[in-house]
Design a protein around this nucleic acid. Structure first.
Lengths: 184, 184
DNA sequence: AGATTATGAATGAACG
DNA sequence: CGTTCATTCATAATCT
């Protein structure tokens, strides 16, 4: 009993007290930015976004931060699930050779940026400067590129092959027991 | 591979499978230690802490290590964010000359250890080798004296001035290309 | 009403 | 050390 983790105590919970409730305008703008390519705003960007969005309602920097964090994570999660499903199906019907699900329209993400895009932006969303100038010309949208967008557009990063499933024999992901700490 | 323990799967993720879930007692004690001034436990200290806390539930050294690492980082993030907001506000309303936000109660941190304290512990929490023998042989609870603790050791270090913003450059609108901040 | 989904918040873990 | 990621919690909205 004492060993039980005890859920529901200090965890992410509590959040119910006075949780930020974004206005439709705020959501819309945040989404537009996200779609525009802003996936991981810097502190400064968050600050600015917060400032701009505050005219639509109470909002704090952390709200913006969490919003992007969650949105990105959930996008990725969806993708992962989808790919997982594909993989499963492929294992079950390897001969079928998917009639039409190489990568597009597999299931549910109706984001204009479809899977393939996500995959590209995946392993590491954007090199560093998320400068897809997809972001039309709305005043808000363009404030996120720091100092003009030199990069053509979402420079693709094919570097790492993202080994999704343990195709190989899975070399014991088990961690070594004894750890070494450091003391700088 | 000198500082951090192990190196699990791909990223911080995955670890979710068997992630350490601290018991309330463990959290309480860790917090007390942190508040008491222990910000960066040495390998030895981590070992001892781990040992003591293990009576409340399964716990590994790396958990303690990460706990302090994260706690400190997030404290600092909070501070940074707050100061940044202050800075912004000051830029916008420089004449107002803050009626009441020299440093206390700026926004949200209700931690008893308020900003000023954080700032003190900031630049470098402990001299370097926190040889504060706080650890002595006390039964954990007081392993790191509860801030009444006077200050036998853990001397404050005011060495580095924390250059948060380019205070000198009052004209530059951009702070630079900094990074994330988060947490409430 | 109970189960399910959506989402803000938090935090353990790990990377660069 | 700062940042990023995955997972989990708690709650509100929605579905069945």
């Amino acid at each position: 009993m004492s060993s039980v983790p005890v859920k529901g105590a200090t965890r992410g919970g509590e959040g119910g007290r006075n949780r930020w409730c974004p206005t439709p305008e705020q959501v819309m703008l945040l989404e537009r930015m996200y779609r525009g390519g802003l996936k991981t705003p810097s502190a400064t960007q968050i600050q600015q976004i917060t400032e701009r969005l505050s005219i639509y309602g109470k909002i704090q920097g952390k709200n913006v931060f969490y919003w992007f964090q969650n949105h990105k994570a959930r996008d990725r999660q969806k993708l992962r699930k989808k790919l997982m499903t594909m993989y499963q199906q492929h294992r079950l019907y390897p001969s079928h050779d998917q009639p039409s699900l190489p990568f597009h329209q597999v299931g549910g993400v109706e984001d204009e940026s479809s899977c393939i895009t996500l995959v590209n932006n995946w392993t590491r969303d954007l090199p560093s400067s998320q400068t897809c100038n997809l972001m039309c010309d709305c005043p808000l949208a363009m404030m996120m590129m720091d100092r003009y967008g030199t990069t053509p557009c979402c420079t693709r990063v094919p570097p790492k092959t993202l080994q999704l499933f343990p195709v190989t024999t899975t070399t014991t992901p088990d961690v070594k027991e004894d750890n070494q700490f450091s003391n700088p």
